[in-house]
C-alpha cells in the first residue's frame, strides 16, 4: 500500500455510526449526499472543514453501533484518506476493508496525535510519523487476507474474480 500523508481531525472514544452518519439521512445511499452530513452529530462543523486527503484520528471503539456501510462510505466520500483509531468496532472494521477505506489500528498514534497535526502513514513499514510533533508510532499490521482484499480493491473486486473463475 502507498504511504498516506495528511492533516488530522481528532475525535474521542466510542464514536458511533449514528454520529458518523445520522439515521435521519439514511433514506439515500448516494455517497456525496452522505458526505455532506459526515460526522455531523459529533462535530457539526466537520463537513464544512474537512478537505480531501485529511485523516480522522479517534479513540477506542470507533464505528460502534449499526452495520450501516453508509458510515465508511460517507467518510470516504468526504475525501478522508484514512482513519486511525485506538481500536475499531468490528462491523465498521470489516465494512471499511470491504469498501477500500484505509483504516489503521494504532493506539499510540491515537493518543499522541492532536487535531491539526500533519502525519505520514506508511502501511508497509507499520509506522505512523507525526510530522508536526516529530514522533513515530507503531501500528497493528493488517492480516494478510485483509491486505489481499484491500489490494484487490475491496471485497467486490475479489468476489468478481472468484465468480468469474467459477463460470
Amino acid at each position: 500500500m502507498q504511504p498516506i500523508r495528511g492533516t488530522c481531525h481528532k475525535f474521542g472514544h466510542d464514536i458511533d455510526t449514528d454520529a458518523i452518519i445520522p439515521a435521519r439521512y439514511l433514506n439515500t445511499s448516494d455517497p456525496l449526499e452522505l458526505a455532506r452530513h459526515c460526522m455531523e452529530d459529533a462535530d457539526p462543523e466537520f463537513p464544512g472543514r474537512v478537505k480531501a486527503g485529511d485523516i480522522i484520528v479517534a479513540g477506542k471503539n470507533f464505528g460502534c453501533g449499526s452495520s450501516r456501510e453508509h458510515a465508511p462510505l460517507a467518510i470516504k466520500a468526504a475525501g478522508v484518506a484514512a482513519v486511525i483509531a485506538a481500536s475499531f468496532a468490528r462491523i465498521f472494521y470489516r465494512n471499511a476493508i470491504n469498501i477500500g477505506l484505509p483504516i489503521f489500528e494504532a493506539p499510540e498514534a491515537a493518543a499522541g496525535i492532536e487535531g491539526g497535526d500533519e502525519v505520514l502513514i506508511e502501511p508497509d513499514k507499520g509506522l505512523i510519523t507525526n510530522l508536526t510533533k516529530n514522533e513515530t508510532y507503531r501500528m497493528v499490521p493488517l492480516p494478510p487476507f485483509m491486505q489481499e482484499l484491500m489490494d484487490a480493491g475491496g471485497l467486490m473486486a475479489y468476489v468478481a474474480r472468484k465468480v468469474k473463475d467459477r463460470v
Binding site: 452495520s67 450501516r68 456501510e69 462491523i91 470489516r94 465494512n95 470491504n98 469498501i99 492480516p143 487476507f145 475491496g154 471485497l155 467486490m156 468476489v159 472468484k162 465468480v163
Partner: peptide, 20 residues
C-alpha cells in the same frame, strides 16, 4: 452476526462469507 452491505452483496452471489 451483522455484516455490511458489501458482505451481503457477496453472500447473495456466492452463498459464502469471510469470518475471523
Amino acid at each position: 452476526t451483522g455484516v455490511g452491505s458489501t458482505d451481503l452483496a457477496a453472500a447473495m452471489a456466492t452463498g459464502e462469507c469471510w469470518f475471523k
